[in-house]
C-alpha cells in the first residue's frame, strides 16, 4: 500500500505492508512523523484521512478523545491502510536525522523475570535478531494473547543488542502486569516494536547531564548512564542522577548505581530521594558511594543543583506528576532552555 503524507512543509511517500500501522511504516521509511506514546493514549500522532480507506485496530483507544472523527481524524499508531491512502498532518515533518535508529517490528523470547522489589520486576528478553537503539529509548511490547502494546524503556545499552532488559511495575488489574507477575512467562514468545523515543543521550552532546527519575522511570536513565560510562563521558563532563522512590522497600539497582559511581567518583553524583520516610541509617553504610535524602525527587534535585545549571542537559522520566514538577523547577528556577529538557511521555 502506498501512503502519502502531506505535512505543513512538504509531502512524503512511503510503502506500508498489509496491516502495518501508518505511523510505523512512516518511521521505518525515515519520515519523522509526530508521535509520543505509540500506544493509542496520547493523541500526538493524529492525522486526517484525505483519500482512501483505513482500518482501525483499536477503536476504543483512549487517545481518540483528542480527535475530530467527523473531519476524518485518526491515530496513525492504531490504523493501517486498506487501499493506497493520502493523509494530512498539521505539523512540520522532517526526515529523521541520519544515524538515528529506525523502529522495526521484532520478535523475542522472555529470558527471565526477576523481582527487584515487592512490586517491581526486571524483565529480560532475548531477541531473535540483534537491534540497535539509542540510550534513553523505549520499545513497545505485546504479551501473547493480550491486545495492544505497552512501552518500556531499555535498561541496558549496547550496539547490536541481543538482549533487552526492562523494568515493569506491578499494576493490579493491568493485563500485561497480570501476565508477567501471575504465571511463569519465561520462554514465552513476545512481539516488540521499536526503538522509539526522543529523550536520547549521545556522547557528542558535550554537556553536563542531569537525570531525574521517579520509580520505574529509572530504566532509561540506567541506559544513559551505561552508555556514558562505556564512553568514559564522565572523565570530562559532570553527571547528576536523582532517583526518587517512596521508601527504602522501593529502591533497586543500588549495586549497579554504586559501580557506575565507583568508576567516576569525581564527576558522577547519585542521590536517592525518599518521599515517605527518612532514609534508614544503614543505607548510607551499605552504599557509601550513594547519597540518601528525604523529599520529593524534584525538590531534592533542586536543592542539590542550585547554582550548578551551567551547560546542563536534563533527562526526566517517571510518573507524569513527578515529570511535570521537575519541568517546572528546570524552566522557572533553573532557567534551562526547553531544548535542554528531554522526556518522553509514554506510560
Amino acid at each position: 500500500m502506498r501512503i502519502q503524507v502531506k505535512a505543513r512543509n512538504r509531502a512524503y511517500q512511503f510503502e506500508a505492508a498489509p496491516g502495518e500501522k501508518v505511523l510505523y511504516a512512516g518511521l521505518r521509511a525515515e519520515t519523522d512523523l509526530p508521535y509520543e506514546c505509540g500506544t493509542g493514549t496520547c493523541g500526538t500522532c493524529k492525522a486526517k484521512l484525505v483519500d482512501g480507506r483505513i482500518v482501525d485496530a483499536w477503536p476504543e483507544a483512549s487517545g481518540k478523545k483528542y480527535l475530530k472523527p467527523e473531519q476524518g481524524e485518526f491515530l496513525m499508531c492504531q490504523c493501517s491502510a486498506q487501499t493506497d491512502i493520502s493523509v494530512e498532518v498539521s505539523s512540520f515533518v522532517y526526515a529523521m536525522d541520519p544515524g538515528s535508529c529506525r523502529p522495526t517490528p521484532m520478535a523475542g523470547t522472555v529470558h527471565s523475570v526477576r523481582a527487584l522489589t515487592h512490586d517491581v520486576t526486571a524483565l529480560e528478553v532475548t531477541l531473535d535478531s540483534p537491534c540497535d537503539f539509542d540510550a534513553g529509548q523505549f520499545v513497545l511490547v505485546a504479551a501473547p494473547g493480550l491486545p495492544g502494546m505497552r512501552g518500556y524503556s531499555m535498561v541496558n545499552f549496547e550496539r547490536q543488542a541481543r538482549r533487552l532488559e526492562f523494568v515493569v511495575k506491578k499494576k493490579p488489574g493491568g493485563g500485561f502486569s497480570d501476565w508477567l507477575f501471575g504465571g511463569n512467562p519465561a520462554g514465552s514468545r513476545i512481539d516488540l516494536l521499536g526503538p522509539l523515543g526522543k529523550a536520547t543521550f549521545y556522547p557528542g552532546l558535550a554537556k553536563n547531564i542531569l537525570c531525574i527519575a521517579g520509580g520505574s522511570g529509572i530504566a532509561g536513565m540506567m541506559s544513559i548512564l551505561s552508555r556514558a560510562c562505556q564512553e568514559r563521558y564522565f572523565e570530562q563532563f559532570q553527571g547528576h542522577l536523582f532517583f526518587g522512590v517512596r521508601a527504602v522497600r522501593d529502591v533497586f539497582y543500588l549495586e549497579q548505581l554504586s559501580s557506575f559511581r565507583a568508576e567516576f567518583p569525581e564527576k558522577l553524583a547519585i542521590t536517592l530521594a525518599f518521599s515517605d520516610e527518612d532514609p534508614p541509617a544503614d543505607c548510607a553504610a551499605r552504599y557509601p558511594l550513594l547519597r540518601f535524602e528525604r523529599g520529593m525527587v524534584h525538590e531534592v534535585a533542586a536543592r542539590a543543583m542550585a547554582g550548578k545549571y551551567q551547560n546542563v542537559r536534563a533527562y526526566l522520566a517517571g510518573p507524569p506528576p513527578a515529570v511535570d514538577a521537575s519541568i517546572r523547577v528546570l524552566l522557572l528556577e533553573a532557567k534551562l532552555t526547553a531544548d535542554n529538557i528531554r522526556y518522553d511521555k509514554f506510560s
Binding site: N9, R10, E30, D32, F92, Y94, A95, M96, D97, P98
Partner: peptide
C-alpha cells in the same frame, strides 16, 4: 528555512 529544511537539517 523551515519549509526548505533538507533531510536531517532539522
Amino acid at each position: 528555512a523551515r519549509f526548505l529544511a533538507a533531510p536531517g537539517a532539522k
